[in-house]
Design a protein around this nucleic acid. Structure first.
Lengths: 198, 198
DNA sequence: GCTCTTTTATGATCTCGGTCATATTTCTTT
DNA sequence: AAAGAAATATGACCGAGATCATAAAAGAGC
């Protein structure tokens, strides 16, 4: 996260996206730095038969889609507003200038990328070689510990639908529903009025 | 990649690891920056029943295991020499000093992380939602285009065993063997004396 | 309150890739 | 050249999770 005034100083614009609208698409060239001012944005892929995979969900203060600004590659996924959202948008060239003139911000950016890489490393290994229940617990624990920074049993209310959990783990809704129930029975999580607590 | 003399100036050491030896393990705290001087190092995970997943393979000039130096996390995977290797090793504090005093090197580092993130984003989506043949082609195309920078049909000789392809894609050897054969029949790749060309 | 949509739920069936067993070919080492 | 190890190959079978169908509960909008 880069503080708003600094972004605005460098010419960032505040732009609104209605629920369901796309900010950019897989395969496009990256032109801007994006940071959520309010709302919720997801990055996702669709495979050939329409199945969605969610790369990540970004909330207030979080930036997304920066890697292609550094590496010379196209966007590996789409970005879409999950709910009505406002986004701070800064053109690539100004963004790079900002980093060059603010080493501390650059370092923070590097740390952000490093954290994301850590998350992806975990997920890719999980998805490739673990059974559904394990995968689900892993992503919940990751969100609990690294995103929401919550401690204590069942203190983390999972603000995701079963479908979203499925899309984050590469499973199917039905499998997630059955697996979460099995996990509740095992005492690994709680379900109160359909919401999952971990 | 950071040029060798610069690393040595900051106190890096050249260390040899025999084939099969581990440089660090999943869950350990990151203490050093690593860069391959010669040989080949892989980062991997093992799941509960011993199945391996290869996060990446690093060759001469490539660095690995940096994210935990930036983000405050433990290693998400092990590092192991695939063949006898020499590695340049620089202590975390000196490494961060190096970056602070050489903004160009820092930017290059950020670009490296960004590229790796790009690769992981592709793989995690592939693994989660695509069939074996698709996954295999994707990783081969990634290696061809982004690692070896080769152009032209069947010009890329894949220097991986079927088992390694399996461990990189989260598949099983038998599946990779069958899938590569099917892909050859479809004209997507060639197999000459058991080596895969793409 | 009523309607429409979204989300959760559950059973039945199917299928693809995993598993297991075994063989053959190639590479290494002595 | 022989022996051993590693990599590739192939068939038979199985099972976990996907798929399909259908329903019920909860939430959103009017």
């Amino acid at each position: 996260m880069i503080i708003e005034n600094l972004l605005l100083d460098f010419g960032a614009k505040r732009i609104s996206y209605a629920k369901g609208n796309q900010l950019f698409r897989e395969g496009e060239t990256a032109l801007n730095y994006y940071q959520v001012a309010s709302g919720e944005v997801k990055m996702n892929n669709y495979n050939l038969d329409g199945k969605e995979f969610i790369q990540g969900i970004f909330r207030e203060g979080q930036s997304f889609g920066e890697p292609p600004l550094f590496a010379d590659v196209k966007y590996p996924a789409n970005a879409e507003a999950i709910i009505d959202s406002e986004v701070l948008q800064l053109h690539k060239s100004q963004f790079l200038e900002l980093l060059a003139s603010h080493p501390d911000v650059h370092l923070k950016m590097t740390q952000t990328l490093a954290k994301r890489l850590f998350y992806k490393a975990i997920m890719v290994s999980e998805i490739s070689s673990q059974e559904p229940e394990h995968r689900i617990l892993r992503i919940l624990d990751y969100l609990k510990k690294h995103v929401h920074r919550i401690d204590g049993k069942f203190e983390f209310k999972v603000d995701l639908t079963r479908q979203q959990i499925a899309d984050l783990t590469g499973l199917r809704v039905e499998t997630v529903i059955r697996a979460t129930k099995a996990l509740e029975k095992k005492g690994e999580l709680k379900i109160r009025s359909r919401k999952v607590y971990r």
